[in-house]
Design a protein around this nucleic acid. Structure first.
Length: 466
RNA sequence: GGCGCCGUGGCGGAGUGGCUACGCAGCGGCCUGCAAAGCCGUUUACUCCGGUUCGAGUCCGGACGGCGCCUCCA
């Protein structure tokens, strides 16, 4: 089997993917908190891990992808209150939006999309185990994780324990009286507070789960302890993933995941600032207010262009996002689509095989979609060279399928009778040297989504974006 | 301030010490009634300063700059 290596945050190195059980691979990626519609930045991990799954399946592995949905959270309470709706209703509404918005990416659904609110029993049981083993303590209805009981705490984010600060909860605790034994400790369970309209029973009191415990619980429930790949944005390394790892380590005596993958952030330059050397750019984040909603971007540029944008850079790198980048991605899509026209069914020429192989070799080395895309475009350049035999589409379809862009090599459909008639009228006009009329008819066809291309064998109608 | 990542041609963006990444845009040309698509060409880039090496964008040290995390965040 192909050796597949992925960058592991904890070791800081590429690690070979070694499935525990035969060819089975579990991937858990942290999904959104549903208090508003998601932005393009939130879509990056969804795309990265969905495509990683496709690639691993291409390599013959049996992949289970789990992307959770956080539907219990302070932000949801706050947003719901300001809207005057029940927090559970807001979360349900935004969950539906999230699923529709990501569905529009056309990459399918994860194998499981667990909700925190539907995993309470598992969460409570995990917390109970942590209390029983002395790694957590209940106080006044809250439950805290005893960070210093984990000798390996900090090993994921690679930072010394004494320079860390959990922050969360400190401000929410009663004034001047933190309930924690140690400021490093973080909440596993939060006692019910006024204004919170969702609450669950637990042995230590009514309340709700803390931020980090849900992922430990859901990942274990769906994939077991010690699964292959845990992913998410690199802004989650600390404290979220550090805490997740610590919880499972202390409760189970084993590491939650083998490889911790983290994708880079989208960067949004303001005022046309350039990516490099600019001072006025920032990560796309709701708190910064520089977000572009996923559904708006997909509506404006199409899912093909957005996926092309994402695969155009290595997943770990920060990625520039703005209108110009989207236009460029759209142009790349057009080049691929054009290259796919005129291909015939069947195998591709043997001389082009090395480029197809280079594509997959790039993916095997830390899922380098940017390098792979380079090989794909080299394949396209080769495809355009004059050759005696028609070119089979097998290689191209195989590569595009892994990128979720196989539709670019699909059949665009046939022009209808009206378009055919317009084309014939244009031909008649051209024959009569009435080029103004011919150009007018060409423009009419363009508006209908068909581009006229005059070739040696006469005009051809090509499907394009209207 | 601490930890981590990064600094490549007009722009985006790969890059395992030695041979054209790739894409987009612009310009010139071929083709064309004009276009589109495609093809050819486009004065050859690696922040700066040292070091290692026969040879460094690619390794080491330093400087400067950027980004992320350290607080909710994909």
């Amino acid at each position: 089997m192909t050796t597949i290596r992925l960058h592991d945050t904890r070791s800081g190195e590429l690690r070979e993917l070694r499935p525990r059980d035969g060819g089975k691979v579990g991937i858990y990626a942290c999904g959104p908190t549903v208090y508003a519609r998601i932005h393009v930045g939130n879509a990056r991990p969804f795309v990265v891990y969905s495509l990683l799954k496709r690639y691993l399946e291409h390599e013959g592995l049996d992949v289970t992808l789990v992307i959770n949905i956080t539907d219990i959270n302070d932000k949801i309470y706050v947003a719901a209150e300001s809207l005057g709706v029940a927090s559970a209703d807001l979360a349900a509404q935004m969950t539906a939006h999230y699923q529709a918005d990501t569905e529009a990416l056309g990459l399918g659904r994860p194998d499981a999309e667990p909700l925190a609110s539907a995993t309470i029993a598992t969460i409570v049981a995990l917390i109970a185990d942590l209390i029983d083993s002395g790694n957590a303590y209940a106080v006044a209805g809250d439950v805290y994780f005893r960070v210093r009981s984990d000798a390996d705490y900090g090993s994921l984010s690679c930072r010394p324990i004494d320079e860390m600060n959990q922050g969360e909860d400190d401000e929410l605790s009663p004034v001047g009286a933190s309930l924690k034994e140690d400021p490093l400790d973080f909440a596993l369970w939060k006692a019910h507070k006024k204004g919170e309209d969702t609450v669950w029973d637990a042995p230590w009191g009514r309340g709700r789960p803390g931020w980090h415990i849900e992922c430990s619980a859901m990942a274990e429930q769906f994939l077991g302890v010690g699964f292959e790949i845990h992913g998410g944005g690199n802004d989650l390394v600390f404290p979220h993933h550090e805490n997740e790892a610590a919880q499972t380590r202390m409760a189970r005596g084993a590491e939650l995941a083998q490889i911790w993958m983290h994708n880079g952030m989208l960067q949004v330059p303001s005022n046309g600032a350039k990516m490099r050397g600019a001072t006025d750019q920032a990560k796309m984040a709701k708190s910064v207010g520089n977000v572009a909603a996923l559904h708006e971007v997909v509506d404006a540029f199409g899912r093909d262009a957005l996926i092309m944008l994402f695969v155009g850079a290595h997943y770990r790198q920060p990625m520039a996002f703005d209108v110009e980048r989207m236009k460029e991605a759209r142009a790349r899509v057009a080049r691929v689509r054009d290259a796919a026209r005129g291909l015939v069914d069947g195998e591709s020429p043997a001389q082009m095989r090395p480029l197809r192989d280079a594509f997959f070799a790039a993916l095997a080395e830390d899922f380098n979609t940017a390098a792979a895309l380079g090989a794909l475009f080299e394949w396209i350049n080769e495809r355009h060279k004059p050759r005696a035999e028609p070119v089979g589409r097998a290689d191209l379809v195989e590569m595009l399928s892994v990128l979720g862009l196989q539709n670019l090599a699909g059949d665009a459909g046939e022009p209808g009778p009206e378009e055919q008639e317009l084309l014939e009228r244009r031909q008649a006009a051209r024959a009569g040297r009435d080029y103004d009329e011919a150009d007018r008819l060409r423009g009419e066809l363009r508006v209908r989504g068909w581009e006229v291309r005059d070739g040696p064998d006469g005009p051809e109608l090509v499907r394009v974006e209207p």
